[in-house]
């Protein structure tokens, strides 16, 4: 303590303005604020570093390399290739958009009906909910393998076809032909509607029952309640599900697991009918066209961004409650 005091005095004696400045800067309040700031940053540091190292840096790198060819700047060379020369581009983007636009609303609506059933007030409903949700927890690679097997042709003992055949309905080509591939993929997604069922169930539970009581007093029937209370009150969740669903669907790689490389292009399916952007990027990368794959990835990023923007811009229908 004594030494400190002496030092302080020495400072006073020699350089008064400097000390005052220092004092002004490190008032106890400021010091506390600084510690508080440091604590806050320290807690957030892992994610700050993580985001910089594992997301922003690679993303920027992908962006930069999409403008280079063999390590040299090449301008929009790859983008020109994508939009002008690559015959895969339009089918691939078309397939992906079609899949996103159909599968997301489809699974939302289907999930809604499933949730209505899962919301019955009967004994043992918890067990039914487990059973409805079970297909969602099965890993994609296992269910892909299973459905590819079940949707095989009659000759390969595909079960769906065996059932259809025994009912005298002939045979469906499923993934064997281009015309039915996309529909088969949608058909497969029926089994994972349990995922959006959960979203709906939680929406149901979060709606104050007073709303329904009031509506009932006013003579509303079940349909009125559904249209004027349940759906408007769950719009934030629908919106959340819509955004995450569309982003997920645009990056879908499921065909990789289902059709493998049986049809020439890995994950392309018969006639490349279910060839998606992410799978195409992966294939290009596999052929060591790293920079071209990066350019494709950037285009995919732009597509995702545009869709998210459209969804947010048209989100007036989302009802966030009175208080916000």
């Amino acid at each position: 303590m004594k030494a400190r005091k002496e030092a302080d005095e020495a400072v006073i004696l020699t350089d008064v303005p400097a000390r005052r400045r220092e004092n002004k800067f490190f008032t106890p309040r400021r010091r506390r604020m600084l510690t508080g700031w440091l604590t806050g940053v320290l807690f957030a540091l892992p994610v700050i570093l993580g985001v910089l190292i594992f997301t922003y840096y690679p993303a920027i790198q992908a962006f930069v390399s999409s403008f280079t060819k063999d390590g040299e700047f090449a301008g929009i060379y790859h983008y020109e290739t994508i939009f002008v020369y690559d015959p895969d581009t339009w089918p691939v983007f078309g397939n992906t958009l079609l899949y996103a636009l159909v599968s997301v609303p489809f699974s939302l609506v289907l999930g809604y009906f499933l949730a209505l059933a899962a919301n019955f007030k009967v004994k043992g409903i918890a067990l039914y909910r487990i059973l409805f949700y079970l297909p969602v927890v099965i890993p994609g690679v296992a269910s892909g393998l299973l459905f590819a097997h079940m949707m095989a042709s009659l000759n390969s003992n595909g079960v769906f076809n065996m059932i259809l055949h025994s009912m005298g309905l002939g045979e469906l080509p499923f993934f064997e032909e281009a015309s039915t591939s996309m529909l088969s993929l949608l058909f497969m997604s029926v089994w994972t509607t349990g995922g959006s069922m959960i979203i709906w169930l939680s929406a149901f539970k979060n709606i104050p029952s007073t709303l329904y009581e009031a509506a009932k007093l006013d003579g509303a029937n079940a349909w009125d309640c559904l249209v004027h209370i349940t759906i408007p009150m769950s719009t934030p969740l629908i919106f959340y599900n819509l955004v995450t669903g569309v982003i997920g669907a645009l990056q879908c790689t499921t065909p990789l697991v289902i059709v493998g490389d049986r049809f020439g292009t890995a994950g392309g399916g018969a006639g490349n009918a279910i060839y998606f952007i992410s799978v195409k990027i992966l294939n290009e990368f596999g052929y060591t066209f790293y920079e071209y794959a990066s350019a494709l990835a950037i285009v995919l990023f732009a597509v995702v961004g545009i869709f998210t923007l459209i969804l947010f811009k048209t989100s007036k229908w989302v009802f966030y409650g009175e208080e916000k």
Partner: peptide, 24 residues
């Protein structure tokens, strides 16, 4: 601001960062 930056990474498709990450 930092939180917004963290959340914005959700918008970046995994496949965009996958290749540079692999090289890294």
């Amino acid at each position: 601001l930092v939180f917004a930056c963290v959340l914005s990474t959700l918008m970046i498709p995994g496949v965009v960062t996958q290749i540079p990450l692999f090289l890294m």
